[in-house]
Design a protein around this nucleic acid. Structure first.
Lengths: 354, 354
DNA sequence: AAATTAAGTGTGTGCGTACACAAATTAAAA
DNA sequence: TTTTAATTTGTGTACGCACACACTTAATTT
């Protein structure tokens, strides 16, 4: 009954060697005679040795340093949520001697990304979490990381060419399909559906177009009714922005709006609320405070949650598990496409990390 | 730069006492002079001591034993998922010297619950996870647990009178409201909506009625159209079951069906698929294989995910954190009311624990 | 005054692993 | 055969904390 766990010491005794030799075999770092190796491996095969992770971690006892490269949270509510995840991780892992250092770049400045990325590289951390929102600028950075052998995890945006430890994010095409589905439910009459890409700076175009592709594909496949799907790429800074949006909302055939960005969702919702078109179905992204407000008051019907906070904190977790506990990480960790409605909203905001 | 973490040893040196004394103060187990206490607390106030959890855990090095009391997974797919969570937890915590022992009772046999609960008590575990689906039978058990001082976590079903470490589950009233909302979307014409409680044994009546209450409340509050909401409590074993269900489906005014149980969802969906009423909106519970099949083929429109697997594994996590890492647990951990659709289904099945 | 009890304090060891280093063995060179 | 080098193996210590136990000093009791 009192079945003690098998320890290195026990293996050593069974194999008739010292713990040092067993350790060398286990981590195959050589300096072991063939004879000793055979004895140990033979014992290893017979018993089911599971190293005590606690002891191992204490033994290695490194003070790891993780760099987190992401956009400045002050300039954007979406990235502010991601940063919340970073802060939560800092607290969580502090006691384990893990220091997480944020490197915040300007969301609208590619050069700033490059500069900060270089700083990350120079800081020579043990691992890196990065949101590589600038595709072209990110490529050489990853080559640098690959060369130096520093493990890194991507989140939010995937760069297929990079070879990260893990990519954390969502299937954008499928996300667009979910948006389309939510738009489609109970729409019995033909009309116009608008896909809106609203951004201050269209650097995530590929990102957004992928959602649109899914959105259109869904209607092509699934809808018996023929909808007129139009798309707009709008820049908030554009002086004609407001007029163009109003013109769209004035279209009497408009049945629904799908906005591909979190911030854009808030902007579009504010227009919709202001110009009072209640019967327009609206689907957008993310649980920004503003979006929640519009969801609660019924302007927004559905939000698809990208959960930047959890993406960030899970990214850190993967790195910690990899560094500290020597656990392998999956190469992709695709998040569920969570549907947020007026009625389940509190169940998402109220609880902890799920 | 090489800012080492503060250790007990450091505190001892600063306070001019030994590590033993510091330890006694930290765990306030007495045998310390006022003078020494003052010195240590004064140091403690000035520095921000954070014990190394790894070392602490290794230091105590107990082999904890956790009992999991839940229905037999073989008799029910829902509980089979919960059991999957238990198995995952066993693997996860095995290396930490934590043994999780399942105690499986018969879902349809109250006495079996009592018997197994007693066995749990006699096994004298360090902590207990329990799904107390039999309200009246559970009450005396919790008294027993409370007396013996064994911490326990409830999941799936709440027993307000019990004083568990944590309750893990969902807000059932709100869950019903979400169901109603999903039923309501795009329903422009009046008609009949059926609330179905299908079960082999109606022991969870309170559970189910709470969902119905939320469902009805939503329509009362939110719907401009007046729907005729009818409810049925059906027992699959009842010989008239099939006829009653068919009669309901034949109602030409029937617009939607809301099923309050996971198994019932599969049963109702099979009837709906068989008697081909595509235009009926159907909302049910849980990602049982069968339910997923009907969701994929369009018979079911929405599933609300109760996530029994995660409920179980998170319950274990709370207990482990409490026992091993001395972390406090929240008294309730309400899960998000996840909406599963045809388009986001794969994003839920594909990924790991979220 | 000696013996007992109590209160307070410090030392030491265990937890299981990793790794440095010394010791032992073997092989090769002088 | 002795010396030197190379290879293999064992020992010891650190990691940070918890806890047992022994020890000191002061307060009682005999």
């Amino acid at each position: 009954m009192a079945l003690k766990n098998i320890r290195i010491k026990d293996i050593a005794k069974l194999a008739g060697v010292s713990v040092g030799t067993v350790d060398r075999v286990l981590h195959n770092r050589g300096r072991v005679s063939d004879e000793a190796l055979k004895k140990v491996t033979s014992v290893m095969e017979q018993i089911d040795y599971k190293p005590n992770l606690i002891a191992r971690t204490l033994g290695t006892n490194k003070n790891y340093h993780i760099a987190a490269l992401l956009p400045d949270p002050n300039s954007d509510p979406y990235w502010s949520q991601a940063n919340t995840g970073i802060i939560a991780s800092q607290l969580e892992w502090e006691q384990y001697g893990i220091r997480i250092e944020p490197f915040l770049f300007d969301l609208f400045d590619k050069e700033s990304f490059q500069r900060l990325a270089k700083k990350v590289y120079e800081a020579n951390p043990d691992a890196i979490l990065v949101a590589p929102i600038f595709y072209h600028e990110a490529l050489p950075i990853f080559e640098l990381f690959n060369e130096s052998g520093i493990p890194y995890v991507l989140f939010n945006t995937n760069i297929p060419e990079a070879r990260p430890l893990t990519f954390i994010g969502q299937n954008l095409y499928q996300s667009g399909r979910v948006g389309a589905e939510l738009m489609h439910i109970g729409q019995h009459h033909s009309g116009t559906l608008a896909v809106l890409h609203i951004d201050e700076d269209i650097h995530e175009s590929v990102h957004l177009l992928e959602k649109e592709r899914g959105f259109r594909a869904y209607f092509k496949e699934k809808s018996k009714i023929d909808f007129n799907i139009v798309d707009f790429t709008l820049n908030v800074k554009d002086p004609t922005f407001s007029d163009r949006l109003k013109t769209l909302l004035d279209d009497p055939t408009l049945k629904g709006i799908f906005v591909s960005t979190s911030k854009g969702t808030a902007v579009a919702a504010s227009f919709l609320a202001q110009f009072g078109k209640r019967e327009i179905r609206m689907v957008g992204y993310d649980m920004l405070d503003e979006n929640l407000k519009y969801l609660r008051q019924g302007t927004i019907d559905f939000l698809i949650n990208q959960n930047p906070k959890r993406q960030a904190s899970l990214g850190i977790s993967h790195l910690v598990n990899y560094l500290m506990f020597k656990k392998g990480a999956p190469d992709t960790d695709l998040f569920p496409l969570e549907v947020i409605t007026q009625q389940n909203i509190d169940s998402y905001t109220g609880s902890g990390i799920h």
